[in-house]
Structure formats: C-alpha cells, structure tokens
Design a protein around this nucleic acid. Structure first.
Length: 940
RNA sequence: GCUCGAGUGGUGGAAUUGGUAGACACGUUGGACUUAAAAUCCAAUGGCCAUCGCGGCCGUGCGGGUUCAAGUCCCGCCUCGAGUACCA
C-alpha cells in the first residue's frame, strides 16, 4: 500500500479526459489567459526529458491561473510538416503522412502520461487540410497586398491598381523592388502580363529571381535562418548561392515595425537583442559617385541617371573625403558595363571564381584579401578626385547597394584591401588631442567614432557626429545622395523544392502566377509516385498526375517552408474548428494574444520573427486585434545529456573502473545510461547489453565498477537519451514534473541527472503519509490547527505563490519540501492546513492532489478549487533573531522583540555576553541597526 | 572580431531591494530497524587549523575599488557557453 502513483495517475488522467476538465470555452464573465507552448515537430524518436521541461512549466502556470479565476486557453498541436518524415519517405516509400500520424500518436501517448492540462479539443496539425487551408488563405492575402510606406501598413493590391489606372505609379511610396516611373497611360497600355509583372514588384508575397541558399544534398532552397555557418541547420549539408526564381515574403517592409514592437513585449533581453541584430538597422547615407567615363555608350540608357553613377551606402558619411577607391560586389550589375577592355579578362576570371566559391569557403577565408581592378574610375563628389573602381567579394551583393566607397583610413576591411593592393590611404579623423600621423606607418585603420575631422574641406574641425549631419545636408543639397536607413533583414524566401509541405494556392497563366479563389481552398497535397525531384529538376509535386486547375492551368509545384504553418498557429487555436474563417472575430477579440509563450531560443531569428510579421500583416488587414502576438515569452533552457563512460584497456576486452583508469592505457566508450546508477555500472546488464561485451572482464574499485561522466548533447549515439516513459513507470508523472522543475531555473541550460529524482519521490511519499495511514485510510481530522502549523502553511502559500508568479519553479518545489518536513515534525493532520496545501500543490503534482482532494470529500476536480491566500497574521512574530556582526562579520545571534527601539537594540547587543570578547580593548565607533535584518557594530 | 549570458561545496542549485553565503535536494559517512536486502528514520557533511563537544582563520572565477556591510554595485582581467560573422 502507500502512495500508489500508478493507479492514481491513470485514474485521474481518465477522469480529465472523460470530463473534458480543461476544455476552454469563451466566457465573458472571466478574464482570459492564454498560455502557449511552442508546438513540437513529432519526430520518430519520441519525447526525451528535455522536451516536456517547458510544457511542465507552462502547465503549472496554466493550472495556477485557473485556480486564480482565469479562463485559461492552453492548447497543443503539431508542427507536422518537416524534413525527417520526407527523407524517410524517399528511403522507404512510406507516405510522410503515415509516418507523421504514427509519430503523433506516440507523442500524444507520452504527453498524456505527464498529466498536462491541454485542451485537446483544440489540437491543430499544420499538415491537416482544414488547418493549411488558412495558411494558404493567408498567402493569398499577402499576394493580394502591398505595403504602403506612407500609411505604414499593408493595403489591398486593388487600391494600388486603381491608382495606377488613374495616376500611374507617381506618388506611391511602397516597399517594392526598384522600379521606373510610369504614367496612367503607360499602365493602361500594358498587356495583362506586363501589368502582372509590374504588380509582382509590389506584392507582399512575390515571385522573383533571387540569390538563394541552395542545398544540393537536401535538394531545396533554405531561408537565411535555416543556414548556420554556411551549412544547413538540418543535416549540416553544404549550402551554395544560386540564382533562382522563388516565392518570397516581403518581410523587409516591416523591418522598422518589427524592431519597434520589441519595446512593447516582455521578452528576455537576449532574445530581443538577437532579433535586433538579425534585423540589423543601420543609419547612414546613400551617395552617388559619378563615373569618369561611360565606357560603352551603346549599353547605357542616356535617360537613366543611375547608369551614369554608382550608388553606395555608408554609415560614415563623415569620412567621404577619405574615400580613395570604390568596391563593387562581383555580381554587381554595373561591373560588365564599366570594366575596360584591358581588364575584361581578369575581371571575368575573378567573377567566375567568386561565383563558384561555396558560402562556407567565403566565410572561413575572410582574412584572404582578393579582388580585381575594373579599369574604371569614379569621381569622389566632394574632393573631385578620380578614384579607381575595384570588385571584391568582401562586398556583398545582398546588402545596401552592393557597392561601397572605401575609406581605408577608417575601416579595417578597406584598410586591409588598400594595404594589399597598394591603394592610397588618407586620414580624415583624428582622435581628440592626437596629431595626424603618416598612414603608411599604420598597422590598422582608426575605426572609432571618437574624434575630430581633418583633411575634409567644409567639415574640418567638427566631431564625427556633427560631420555626419553636415555631410548628409550637403549631399542632399547637391542632389547626389540622402540620409538613409538600411536593414540587414532580407525578404523571406518562401519556396521549397520539397513534397511534404503546404501547396501554394497558385496557378500559372501565360507564365504569370495567379491566386486561386478562396472557395477552391484547401488545395490539397496530391499523391505522388516518387518523393524525389523529377528528372528535369522540377520539385516532387511535378510528379503528381493532374496537378492543374479545373480550367487546365498548371499549379505551382513548389511547397511552402516549415515556418509557414507555424507562423499563425496560435490564432487558429482560438477557433480551431471554424470552417468559414481562419477564426471568428469574437474568438479573436476574446482571446486576443498569447499572454505567456514558452519555448526554446533557437527560434529567435526564425519562427519568432516570421510569426510577428504574419501577425502584423493580419493586424493591418483588420483580422487580428493585437499588433504583437506574444506578450510575454520565456526561453526554457536546454537539458543536456549526462553521458556515462566505461574504460576499456586498449586492445583487450577488459574494463577498468574510473579512478584506476590512469594506470592503464584506456579508451573511453559511451555506455547506455540505463545501465548506470549513481555512476555505478550494472556489470551483468553491461555484459548482456551487446554481444561483444558478453565476456568482458572488469577491474573494480571497492567491489564496484565506477563510470566516468561528461555533459554532452542528448543523442542516441551517445547513449545518454533519457525518455520520460521509464521514469514515469518507476516514479510517476507527478515526481517527474516536480523533478524537472526542481532541477534548476527554467531559463538555464542544465545537465540531466536522475540522481536527484529519489529526493522528490521521497517528498511525495512523505506528503502522502500526512493524509493517509499504511492502509490508505484518511487520517485528516477536523481538529483546530496549531499556530505553528498555520505558520508553516501560510509561509508556504506566500512563498509558493510569489515563486509561481515569477516563474521560479525550482524554489517553489523547495518550499513545498520545507513545508512537508515541518508539518511532519509537527505531526500535523488538520484539514485546516492539509486541504489548502493540496490546492497549492495541485499545479505541480495534479494527480496526487486530485486523489487527496477527492479523499477529502470533494466531488469536483481540484482544478475548480479557489487558490488559498496567505494571511500575514499567522506569520507575525514577537521576536526577531538578530544576527550581530562586528565589522561586517556575523558573530552571534540575539533574540529581541520586533518592536524594540533602535537605541534599545544597540544597548542589548552591546550588553550581550558573546559581545564582550569582541569589544575587549576596542572602542565602538558606530552601530548600524537595520530593523528586522541585522546589527553591525563597528569597532576599532 | 562584435553582441548577449554565465562562473557559488563532491553534484544540481538557494540567497527576490547591498544586510546571517551554501536553503532545499542528491551524494558521502556513521547510526537505528531487519536474519539480510530494499524501504524508512536519526545524525554529521564548504575548506583549513584546533587541547578536533571551546573556538578561530579562509571562502561565491582573478585583481582592484565603493560601503558600517559586496555572491549582489563600480573599474580592469580570465574562463566557459550562445548568437552572429567581411552588413560598409
């Protein structure tokens, strides 16, 4: 008998399912609270102990909020599209849907066993046509919208078309591709195809030729955030740059709003900082440099001023006088036009070399200075000096204008380039108080913004900041440039050459894309015979038979990327079964936004930016009522694996215990952590683990084989994966929940170590014994609780409540332990204390709390109970045990009445017996008394 | 390189506003119960010194500083982790 967690947990999980205890229904009499977990990709290996960490925290918080009278929305679903299921399909032919379904069932089973209070009636799956219908629908809205920089919001493309019909594109300030002016007559004279082509420059979802991250191994394009250090995030395959026609989302239109919105959300600073860096705003100026000559008059449009000059972006307009050469990205469109015949060959060679270089090579070989002279010259607009134009791949085509004015004196990259190619270096900024020096003696440039301008005509003597302002004013007056802001953020490439993803609701007519009508949605993913690209290199959907509209137009064969379905899932949870709308206005106006979002920080530059963009767009078109989707966000730390090692003596089948390993030449081998308990190896288990160890011999210490250990990433190959199932089997879900919280602060990374779990399990057994005897008869009485008992309870209520409110779950668990230890010592069995305690504990350990609650005679679930409020009266003391310090060092304690006057406290402290030896032969200089804190006596 | 975060016993960690450093738990050691084991319970447990049942010194990565008082604040370093990577 005793604490039978297995039957208790099963009983209550069944009860919750049957009674739909956690079903959330709109109730205008209650305040809403929306708690969301980042939904999982259901992988084939199931959950390991790291996954539920955040879910447990959010579940505790959800349950706490319910007790506090909130109407809590706490849903769960699956990010069901993803590469692993598709890779598996390619290998085995199993449809990804089948694999995914199987994995979801396993996930669900595991999640259920942990006792989460999810409202499963709201479950969504991104791969469900009823869900992706709205992903497709949103895409169409994006396709049919443009971003008006004047109103700072997305607007309907029809408004734009009307404007074009009446006034051409004059007076339009849109986030769009570079575009020439056209009149209403031009527009009305355009063919439909030409009009569509023009509109594509404005649409928020648009098709264009872009430089993409192509991953040959995965056979698809990847977004910037899916590439880490030149390799694909999934699988670590090489990535190369390639020009391809792709769908993109014009997220850059929202750069400033995405940046500004960060000021209004309660997120970790580090995460906000990551997003700010990713958006990468920089202020500066764009400046036109005229070319000295036009080299091939035939190729230049005499009416296009831009072709006569090169536009650069700089954050240091103050150093314009120091610009001694220009550098273009090798892909820059003017390179061919300006290159002189003499330089043609070397420039072509360099362009080819740069093009074939992998991203990884380019990134790792940053220190190598490469480049070629084009033979052309530009004119520095302020000095009127002739300066050479070079190409080099340290200038990126994707940032700014793909061209720079090089200021070698004050930019370290330009300095390295100038030094290498012997180009002139001029000093135009001098550190305040220093004298200018000969730049030929410099080891590096002076990049700091601290200083005074020299050698710079009208800005001489100004500070850097003043000079920036004046230079911008000057170039604006000269009509050769203006102050501008640049963002590092790129438009999000939205096409994937993959099967397992949302089909685009797009068909092609005369080569131009058109959106399907809403009533044609969802456009369901077709069956294919092969999940590989077609022989002519088209995406897998090109294998589908009859992949055409009812009118016979071909459908788009790319699919959407992983972040498509996850960008708006929190909205669908508000009204997941709605067949006519993404979600109803009523549901959105009630649930509004996510109050608490818990998940990993690996989504900082991906999901969390896309999702905010998605939401802001829906906000612009009047669909959602909040501008930011996630009010408060917490990053749960990762749980690392704790690997165990055995030490094989090299060349033998003999294993030596950890502390004796130095005496031999050994090789450390990972051993399955299931075979290790407190670093002691289960020797017999080890022998039967693998046939090769069947006859293994051991050198023991103290009769035991001690394993070594190391903290590493949790992975199958390291045999350190801990899945929750076996722990739940052994200790129960309540123990697992408490233990994961007890491990340490939620936000911190920490190694998984089962060693401490026994302590939490013991705690629950001790708790049980407060309520039940050995035969599980209730021993709770109606007897009035003592002052001590009430003090223990109310101290705990106070502590646990404030801990939950500040998401300090580990200290909350400690507080429970302290409370149980005290009540045990007090032999407390009073209902007055034990009943509120059960409510207090129920967010953490819901199963055992429900069992206790019902044993106490309640018919309703404990989740309906009102959370206890601490009463300060029980906590007030008559005396305080003052620590008495001498010169800041605590020497002894003295118990004094809490209301004693400072002067009397001083007297008492000095009078105390223990004080005498510290006072001996010394004079008291000062006494500091902080009431109810400390007494410090300064002697000397 | 730049940005952000973190360094506290054998281990995970606590100390919420500058005020008793090491709560709580694991582990370890000793003891009780038991034929034995498990479970349970009790005690000790930062290091060093000690006439080890009085008592003292040192101690929160390192070096300075502010303060009656610093794990906490300031300055300068070191180490580790994360993000980013020629972003002009």
């Amino acid at each position: 008998m005793g604490y039978d967690f297995q039957s208790i947990e099963k009983k209550w999980q069944d009860y919750w399912r049957k009674h739909q205890t956690y079903k959330a229904v709109i109730d205008h009499n209650k305040p809403k609270y929306y708690v969301l977990d980042m939904f999982p990709y259901p992988s084939g290996s199931g959950l390991h102990v790291g996954h539920p960490l955040g879910y447990i925290a959010s579940d505790i918080y959800s349950r706490f909020k319910r007790h506090k009278g909130y109407n809590v929305l706490h849903p769960m679903g699956y990010d069901a599209y993803g590469l692993p299921a598709e890779q598996y399909a390619i290998q085995t032919g199993t449809h990804p849907e089948i694999t995914t379904e199987k994995n979801i069932l396993r996930y669900r089973e595991q999640l259920d066993k942990i006792g989460f209070s999810f409202d499963w009636s709201r479950e969504v799956r991104t791969s469900d046509p009823q869900y992706y219908k709205w992903t497709q629908w949103t895409f169409i809205q994006l396709f049919n919208s443009w971003y008006n920089n004047k109103t700072k919001k997305a607007e309907k493309i029809d408004l734009l078309i009307n404007h074009f019909k009446e006034k051409g594109n004059a007076g339009i300030d849109a986030a769009c591709a570079e575009i020439d002016e056209f009149t209403s007559d031009d527009w009305n004279g355009y063919s439909e195809t030409k009009q569509q082509e023009m509109l594509m420059n404005y649409r928020l979802a648009y098709l264009s030729n872009t430089m993409v991250n192509w991953c040959p191994e995965l056979g698809t394009v990847l977004a910037n955030d899916e590439v880490k250090e030149g390799l694909s995030e999934r699988g670590g395959h090489p990535v190369e740059k390639k020009m391809m026609k792709q769908w993109s989302l014009r997220i850059t239109a929202y750069s400033q709003r995405l940046l500004d919105g960060l000021d209004n959300v309660d997120w970790p600073d580090s995460l906000k900082e990551m997003q700010r860096n990713w958006i990468g705003r920089s202020e500066g100026a764009s400046v036109f440099f005229n070319l000295e000559h036009k080299f091939d008059p035939k190729e230049i449009d005499p009416f296009d001023e831009e072709q006569w000059g090169i536009e650069v972006f700089t954050t240091r307009p103050d150093t314009l006088f120091g610009a001694t050469f220009m550098v273009l990205a090798p892909e820059h469109e003017l390179v061919d036009q300006i290159t002189t015949p003499e330089q043609k060959e070397v420039v072509e060679k360099y362009k080819l070399w740069a093009k074939n270089r992998s991203e990884r090579e380019r990134m790792t070989e940053v220190k190598n200075v490469t480049g070629e002279f084009t033979g052309a010259f530009a004119i520095n607009p302020l000095t009127n000096e002739k300066i050479p134009i070079w190409i080099a791949d340290y200038v990126l085509s994707g940032y700014g204008t793909g061209a720079i004015m090089a200021v070698p004196g004050h930019d370290s990259r330009d300095f390295a380039f100038a030094s290498h190619f012997k180009l002139p270096i001029i000093q135009v900024v001098v550190k305040d108080g220093d004298n200018p020096t000969d730049t030929s003696t410099w080891d590096d440039s002076y990049d700091s913004k601290e200083g005074i301008i020299i050698n710079s005509g009208f800005i001489n003597g100004l500070t850097v900041t003043e000079a920036m302002k004046d230079t911008i004013a000057k170039i604006e007056e000269m009509k050769i440039g203006k102050g501008t802001i640049n963002y590092r953020l790129r438009d999000a490439i939205f096409s994937r050459q993959r099967y397992w993803g949302e089909p685009f609701p797009i068909y092609y007519k005369d080569g131009m894309p058109y959106a399907l009508n809403q009533n044609e949605l969802p456009l369901e993913l077709p069956k294919v015979d092969s999940y590989l690209p077609t022989s002519d290199g088209n995406p897998p959907l090109a294998n589908a038979k009859g992949w055409i509209t009812s009118d016979g137009y071909p459908l788009e064969t790319n699919t959407m990327p992983g972040f498509a379905g996850s960008s708006g899932y929190y909205l669908r949870y508000m009204d997941p079964k709605n067949e006519n709308q993404y979600f109803s206005k009523e549901a959105n106006e009630y649930w509004r936004d996510v109050d608490l979002y818990i998940g990993g920080d690996e989504h900082a530059a991906g999901h969390l930016i896309y999702s905010r963009f998605w939401n802001k767009f829906l906000y612009d078109i009047g669909l959602v009522c909040e501008d930011e989707p996630y009010k408060k966000l917490i990053n749960q730390g990762k749980i690392q694996g704790r690997s165990s090692f055995v030490y094989r003596i090299t060349g033998t089948n003999k294993f030596v215990s950890y502390n004796l390993r130095k005496e031999h030449q050994t090789q450390a081998l990972h051993v399955d952590i299931e075979l290790v308990n407190n670093d002691v190896l289960d020797v017999d288990g080890f022998k039967s683990w693998r046939s090769e160890f069947e006859n293994a011999e051991f050198i023991l210490e103290d009769g035991k084989y001690i394993c070594g250990h190391e903290v590493e990433k949790m992975s199958k190959s390291k045999h350190n994966v801990q899945n929750p199932d076996s722990l739940i089997e052994k200790y129960g879900a309540d123990t697992l929940r408490l233990y994961e919280m007890f491990l340490g602060p939620l936000e911190q990374d920490k190694p998984w170590d089962t060693n401490g779990i026994e302590g939490v399990f013991r705690f629950l057994k001790k708790l049980w014994k407060l309520y039940f005897d050995e035969n599980n008869n209730l021993i709770v009485t109606e007897k009035k609780a003592t002052g001590e008992e009430l003090k223990s309870l109310h101290k705990t209520i106070k502590k646990v409540t404030s801990d939950v409110e500040r998401f300090s779950f580990n200290t909350g668990v400690s507080a429970f332990m302290i409370c149980i230890n005290e009540l045990n010592d007090q032999k407390c069995n009073s209902r007055e204390v034990l009943e509120p305690l059960a409510i207090l504990l129920s967010p953490y350990a819901p199963h055992v709390s429900e069992e206790i609650w019902s044993a106490l005679g309640h018919k309703e679930s404990i989740s309906t109970a009102t959370y206890p409020i601490h009463n300060e009266e029980f906590l007030t003391e008559n005396t305080f045990n003052y620590p008495v310090s001498f010169n800041g060092k605590m020497r002894f304690k003295i118990s004094l009445p809490v209301n004693m006057e400072k002067a009397d406290i001083e007297k008492e402290a000095l009078k105390a017996e223990e004080a005498q030896k510290w006072l001996e032969g010394k004079s008291v200089r000062k006494i500091i008394v902080v009431p109810l804190r400390i007494i410090n006596i300064v002697v000397g």
